[in-house]
């Protein structure tokens, strides 16, 4: 589930490596933090609920510039728009991302299998599963770009 929005218009410029790494890190950390804060806080605690929403919104704001970045172009743009080096980088990155994402899904399933017996927290209700769904979508979209931003290939992709 990959998405790339072209930013090739006037004034468009690539993000620095530091910015890419910061934004991907923030998006992937703040979303689950916000969703968990919202899910685990009591319904009558407006401050905690609001804090959860604020973290989720912050994660989405951090994610937006990534969708138009040079790393997202490599992993999600049409193949016809990439040259052979970029396609090789895409192949390496998506292979790694597949491993990471399936690993996370397996860990989540193992947790869910153990949680009921152990009495651990499990998502219940529409809000919790809604947050889980959008979180999975966010991770599926950003993991390839994140891996690329933190890879050795990233330095060579600057200054497009």
């Amino acid at each position: 589930m990959l998405f790339y929005r072209s930013s090739s218009g006037p004034g468009a410029r690539p993000l620095s490596l530091a910015a890419l790494r910061t934004l991907t890190g923030l998006a992937l950390v703040l979303y689950p933090a916000g969703a968990l804060l919202k899910a685990l806080s009591p319904d009558d605690s407006a401050a905690l609920q609001l804090g959860g929403y604020a973290l989720i919104v912050a994660a989405l704001i951090a994610a937006l510039p990534i969708l138009t970045s040079q790393v997202q172009r490599i992993v999600a743009d049409e193949a016809a728009g990439l040259d052979e080096y970029e396609l090789a980088v895409r192949h390496r990155t998506l292979s790694a991302a597949y491993g990471v994402f399936t690993g996370m899904v397996l860990l989540a399933l193992i947790y869910a299998g153990m949680a009921r017996d152990a009495g651990w927290w499990l998502p219940r209700g529409f809000d919790a599963f809604n947050a889980l769904f959008w979180g999975a979508l966010l991770y599926a979209t950003l993991i390839p770009a994140t891996l690329l931003a933190w890879s050795r290939d990233a330095a060579g992709l600057q200054g497009e």
Binding site: D83, E84, Y85, E86, G156, L157, G159, E160
Partner: peptide
Amino acid sequence: LDVSRQAVNAIETGKHDPS
């Protein structure tokens, strides 16, 4: 060569073998 600058850089530095 009708490739990206990144491709040229990767070939020059030995990170990518051209087709």
